[in-house]
């Protein structure tokens, strides 16, 4: 494998759009600089031979673990909605999403 560096021309605006985060101008500049440095540091992973190595999603294999399908005691509506910032008549108010 050719050991070339990744392209670090990170498109901050593009990532911020994917991450749904509004960034102020100064934040955008600061992040561009630090992300460049950090991604350059990540480049060292390119030097490791990982051929034939299985990826680990967890430290040890975890399989689907399901509880018995038994009815528990759910929250009452008031408790379930107590942290909703905008609510009315036991319902969550969301912005309009269809025209």
């Amino acid at each position: 494998m050719k050991d070339k560096s990744f392209d670090h021309s990170v498109h901050i605006e593009n990532i911020a759009t994917l991450a749904r985060i509004h960034l102020a101008d100064q934040e955008r500049q600061d992040l561009a600089k630090s992300l460049d440095e950090i991604l350059e540091y990540f480049d060292k992973l390119r030097t490791v031979n990982v051929e034939g190595v299985e990826p680990s999603a967890h430290a040890f294999p975890l399989y689907d673990i399901l509880r018995d399908d038994e009815v528990g005691t759910p929250f009452d509506v008031k408790t379930a909605l107590q942290n909703v910032p905008k609510r009315r008549n036991n319902q969550v108010i969301v912005p309009k999403i269809v025209e």
Partner: peptide, 19 residues
Amino acid sequence: RGEGFGSEVKRRIMLGTYV
């Protein structure tokens, strides 16, 4: 998210989104 998260959290979300 822009107003609610601090700068280090934003940096890590951005990095994570990128990778």
